[in-house]
Computed example of a mutant assay.
Amino acid sequence: MITFVDLFCGGGLGARGAVTAGARPILAVDAWDIATTTYKSNFPSAEVLCSPIEQIDPRGFAGKHRPDVLLTSPECTSHSIARGAKPGCEQSKETAIGIIPWIEAMEPRWLIVENVNRMKKWGRHNELVSTIESYGYTVNDLFLNAADFGVPQSRKRMFLICDRQGSVISREHLISLHKREVKPAHSVIDWSGKYKSRPLYAENRAQATIERAERAIKKLGRKKDFIIVYYGSDYGGGWQSLDIPLRTVTTLDRFGLVTWKDNTPYLRMLQPPELLKAMGVGSKHELPHGNRRDKIKLCGNGVCSPVMEMIFKKIILIESKEMGLAS
């Protein structure tokens, strides 16, 4: 079985995809205790450490853990457009450089680096790629949208998929491995009535929220459900249809569902189980720790499971073919 070490592991959403493909996590590291306890709850056989990776000497684990894959999702806050006009923190960005000692110590055949695509504008991005290549890796630099993998969310991310044996992997290779149709935002909603709404025109409702909703109503007409989108670039007018994939899930509470009772619009925020579904995670994965805000953050920091599933399926397929040739 393919094994992996998971750096910046979060709540294990990416790991869930890897496990679904047939891989096994042996070590996971994250600096946030809610993330590590969530990971441990979902993957109890893995060793899980709560620490910044730069405060750990990976040589101490090299004899114990020799993974096939080093899976990394460095902190993306200072690369992401979701941070708005706030100045980027170079220390946050340089967490990506912190993976190099782990490569040296563990010598995995495969290395995966996931981040927002704007990471390519970082001044040290090319340095990171050339350093990875100096260790003998062929770097496949891919731009993947989770919606292309049957995830009910438009989430575009950079993936560096690196192999010491020189494998060439393309976006088309990965998409061809799955037979999933595009899923709309409608599919993540819990329509049972479990989560209560308030009238849109309730007292103390922010005027900006009213304006977003009224733009949607003007476009769609009355008695048509839709989603209000808070934060981030407002190219969509602050709302979106339920007939297309959800816009990117972030660490903030950004999606409000507008539904109708007779001719009156009601509003509620999407809840963590719905956001987890928007990340493509199946019913096996749970978020048993933390408050509502923590669970939203776990989703926003995560990697969509089906995307990672297809990456690991491709890795397993390549290695299986090599073993077949060798035999």
Results as ranks from 00 to 15, higher is better:
I97Y: 15
L220T: 01
K219I: 10
H79T: 01
V229D: 00
N145K: 11
T251P: 01
R222N: 15
G193W: 04
L220G: 02
G232K: 09
A105C: 06
E309W: 12
V249W: 03
G150T: 08
A15H: 09
M310I: 02
N115W: 12
T37V: 07
K218L: 12
L160R: 14
G136Q: 13
Q153F: 05
R155I: 06
T38P: 02
G98S: 15
P272R: 09
L144S: 04
Q271A: 09
D33M: 03
T95R: 00
G324T: 00
A208S: 14
K120N: 09
M308T: 07
V151W: 03
F61Y: 15
G11W: 01
Q271Y: 10
S73V: 00
R222P: 05
E114A: 12
N263C: 04
V113F: 11
F159G: 03
R212W: 10
N115R: 02
R171W: 05
G282M: 04
T248M: 14
P273K: 05
V182L: 12
L317A: 15
A18T: 03
A62D: 10
T72L: 09
W102P: 02
T3R: 10
I81R: 14
A85F: 10
W191E: 14
A18L: 14
P288D: 10
T264R: 08
E211Q: 12
Q91D: 13
T36G: 08
L267G: 09
A35M: 02
T72W: 08
I53F: 07
A213T: 06
L275Q: 02
S233N: 14
G300W: 02
E114D: 12
R24H: 14
T138V: 13
N204W: 06
A185G: 10
Q240F: 08
D262I: 05
I97E: 15
R155A: 13
G12C: 04
V168C: 05
V19Q: 13
L128G: 03
Q271E: 15
F8K: 00
L287D: 00
D163V: 08
C9K: 00
L111F: 11
L128P: 03
W102C: 05
I97D: 13
L298D: 00
S130K: 15
